[in-house]
């Protein structure tokens, strides 16, 4: 049996985990090392750390954080946020990350995806795609992608969802697969932060069209949402941050629920 993966995400800023933390039984709820250990104990299949530090100083603390998190972690660790060059990737991979996630830089300099894949193998590179659904009636924006196919379309956005790129998400996903991406971390900007469920339509459109795994992200609010994104969205893995920050949704209880719903998971 091949398991669907459950991946908690630590959003880190200046060496601390941010985003609605409500843990008990932790000495320091914002410490990435402690949270990583807890998720590992609960049965997380992997861990993703995204650095959202805006400042140069914040970025500098990232290496130390990665080292601390990786030290006692024996499941795969992906690190992203501000990875722009092969050198950035090299530094993270030699510090303890198993994979690096590249988002904005992949759009601006696609060669970096190829370079990382060639130097470290495609398993080491995850391309993060932030996508926003294009409204049918949206006209007047000449830069919006107009792909020649039926059905809904999504546009790739960069810089944390602030900059539209004019790229069609499905075409971009195909392109990064060719460039050497080992996996795609797909975030719906429409559902992210809503806790109303993953965008299953977006996820299945991308996941079914590709031969590399797709990690769905954005919108997890209940255990049922995970069932939907695996069954209807054809996701290979699902990532979430805030839902695991409440003790009502431990990774263990989520996996138990998924198993009872017929979703293959590692317990």
């Amino acid at each position: 049996m091949f398991a669907k993966r459950i991946i908690p995400c630590l959003d880190c800023k200046d060496g601390r985990v941010v985003k609605g933390i409500h843990f008990v039984n932790l000495r320091d709820a914002g410490d990435p090392g402690e949270l990583a250990e807890m998720y590992n104990r609960e049965g997380a299949d992997e861990l993703v750390m995204l650095d959202i530090s805006a400042s140069r100083e914040g970025r500098a603390t990232l290496m130390e954080t990665v080292r601390r998190v990786a030290r006692r972690l024996f499941i795969p660790l992906t690190v992203g946020g501000g990875v722009r060059t092969l050198e950035d990737a090299r530094r993270l991979l030699s510090t303890g990350a198993d994979k690096v996630a590249v988002n904005t830089a992949a759009v601006e300099t696609p060669e970096v995806v190829m370079q990382i894949a060639e130097n470290y193998g495609r398993q080491a590179i995850v391309v993060a795609i932030d996508a926003r659904r294009l409204k049918k009636s949206s006209t007047g924006d000449a830069s919006a992608p107009q792909p020649n196919r039926l059905g809904p379309h999504w546009e790739v956005v960069t810089y944390g969802g602030t900059k539209p790129t004019g790229l069609d998400a499905l075409e971009w996903a195909h392109r990064v697969q060719e460039l050497g991406a080992g996996e795609i971390l797909l975030t719906s900007m429409d559902t992210d932060g809503t806790q109303e469920g993953f965008d299953c339509e977006l996820t299945s459109t991308i996941s079914r069209a590709l031969h590399i795994p797709v990690i769905a992200s954005g919108g997890a609010g209940s255990a049922q949402h995970f069932v939907e994104v695996f069954q209807r969205g054809s996701a290979d893995a699902a990532l979430a941050a805030s839902i695991f920050h409440y003790e009502t949704h431990t990774i263990g209880s989520l996996k138990e629920f998924l198993r009872n719903q017929g979703v293959p998971v590692r317990i």
């Binding site: 049996m1 091949f2 398991a3 993966r5 299949d45 031969h211 590399i212 795994p213 290979d236 590692r266």
Partner: peptide
């Protein structure tokens, strides 16, 4: 029909 690479947990 399976995805390649095989990335993840198998038994």
């Amino acid at each position: 029909i399976f995805k390649v690479p095989h990335i993840g947990w198998s038994q």
